[in-house]
Computed example of a mutant assay.
Amino acid sequence: MMKTMLKRVWQAIPSGIVCLCVIFALFGYIGSIMGVPNMLNTIMKTAHDLLLNTVFYLMGICVITGAIGRLFVEFGVVSLLEKLLRPLMRPLFNLPGVASLGAVMTFLSDNPAIISLSQDKRFSSYFKKYQFISLTNFGTAFGMGLLVMVFMVGQGFYIEPLIGLFGAFVGCIVSTRLMQRKILKAYPQYAEEQVCDPHEVEEEEQKEEQKSLFLRTLNSLLDGGRTGVDIGIAIIPGVLIISTLVMMLTFGAGANGYDGSPYQGVELLPWLANKIDFLFAWLFGFNDPHQVAFPITALGAVGASLGLIPGFMSAGWVDGNAIAVFTAIGMCWSGYLSTHTAMLDSLGYRELTSKAIVSHTIGGIAAGMVAHWTYVLVMLI
Rank of each mutant, 00 (worst) to 15 (best):
M1E: 08
L6I: 05
W10S: 07
P14D: 11
C19Q: 10
C21V: 15
F24R: 02
F27C: 08
S32L: 01
I33C: 00
G35Y: 13
V36F: 10
T42K: 01
K45V: 06
L51R: 03
L51E: 01
F56H: 03
M59Q: 09
G60C: 07
C62I: 00
V63Q: 11
I64P: 14
T65N: 14
R70A: 12
V73P: 00
S79M: 06
L81Y: 13
K83R: 15
P87F: 14
M89P: 02
F93R: 02
V98M: 01
V98W: 00
L101S: 12
T106R: 00
A113G: 01
L117K: 12
K121N: 07
R122A: 06
F132K: 02
F132T: 01
T136P: 04
L147M: 14
V150G: 11
M152G: 02
Q155H: 11
Y158K: 09
Y158S: 04
P161F: 04
F166W: 13
S175D: 04
T176L: 03
L178H: 08
M179L: 02
Q180K: 04
I183T: 10
P198K: 05
E204M: 12
E205S: 05
K211R: 14
S212W: 09
D230P: 00
D230E: 10
I231Y: 06
G232I: 01
I235Q: 09
I236L: 07
V239F: 05
I242F: 05
S243F: 03
T250H: 03
V266N: 04
L272V: 06
K275P: 00
G285A: 09
G285F: 06
G285I: 10
G285N: 11
N287E: 14
Q291F: 00
A293G: 05
F294V: 12
I296A: 07
L299N: 07
A304F: 00
S305V: 05
S305L: 06
G307W: 10
G307F: 08
I309H: 06
G311V: 04
G320V: 03
F326E: 13
G330W: 01
S334V: 12
H340Q: 04
I357R: 05
S359L: 00
S359C: 01
I362M: 13
I365F: 15
A366M: 14
G368E: 03
G368F: 02
A371E: 09
Y375C: 15
V376W: 04
M379H: 07
L380D: 07
